[in-house]
Computed example of a mutant assay.
Amino acid sequence: MYCNKCGKEIPENVKFCPNCGNKIKGKTEDLLEVKEKEEEKEDEKEIEEVKEKEEQKDDEKEKEISKPGLNNSKKKTIGIFIVLLMIIVGLAGYVGFDLFSNKNNPKNEKVNTVSKKSIDKKDKKEGEDKDNQDENNADQYKEDEENTLKETPENEDSNATSSIIEGETAITEDNPNKFTCGYVFPESDSRYLNEEDLMYETSQKLALGRNEIYARHGYVFKTEPYKTYFEHKDWYAQDPSFKGGDSSLNEFEKYNIKLFLKYEND
Rank of each mutant, 00 (worst) to 15 (best):
G7F: 01
G7H: 03
E9L: 08
P11D: 08
N13M: 14
F16W: 09
P18M: 05
N19S: 03
G21Q: 04
G21K: 02
N22S: 05
K23V: 12
K25S: 10
T28N: 15
D30H: 13
L32N: 10
E33Y: 07
V34I: 09
E38Y: 14
E38M: 14
E39G: 08
K41R: 10
D43Q: 07
K45N: 04
E48L: 12
E48Y: 11
K51F: 03
K51E: 07
E52K: 11
K61A: 04
E62I: 09
E62S: 10
E64G: 00
K67H: 15
K74W: 00
K75N: 13
K76Y: 07
I88W: 14
L91V: 13
A92N: 10
G93K: 05
V95F: 13
V95G: 10
G96D: 10
F97C: 03
L99R: 12
F100D: 10
N102K: 13
K103G: 09
N105F: 09
N108L: 12
E109G: 13
K110V: 05
T113R: 11
V114D: 13
V114T: 09
V114N: 12
K116V: 11
K117S: 15
I119E: 14
I119L: 14
K122Y: 04
D123Q: 04
E126D: 15
G127C: 12
E128S: 05
D129K: 06
D131Y: 08
N132S: 02
Q133A: 11
E135M: 12
N136P: 13
N136A: 15
N147D: 10
T148L: 05
L149M: 08
L149W: 01
L149D: 01
K150W: 00
K150I: 02
N155Q: 10
S158T: 15
N159F: 03
A160E: 02
E166N: 01
E168W: 05
E173M: 05
E173W: 02
E173F: 04
P176A: 05
P176T: 01
K178L: 03
F179I: 00
G182P: 01
P186T: 05
E187P: 00
S188N: 07
S190D: 11
R191T: 13
R191V: 14
E196T: 06
Y200C: 05
K205F: 07
L208A: 01
N211T: 13
N211S: 15
E212R: 01
A215D: 07
A215G: 05
Y219P: 01
V220Y: 11
V220E: 06
V220R: 07
F221Y: 03
K227G: 04
K227H: 06
K233S: 01
K233F: 02
K233E: 01
Q238E: 03
P240V: 07
P240H: 09
G244V: 00
F252K: 09
Y255C: 06
Y255G: 04
I257A: 02
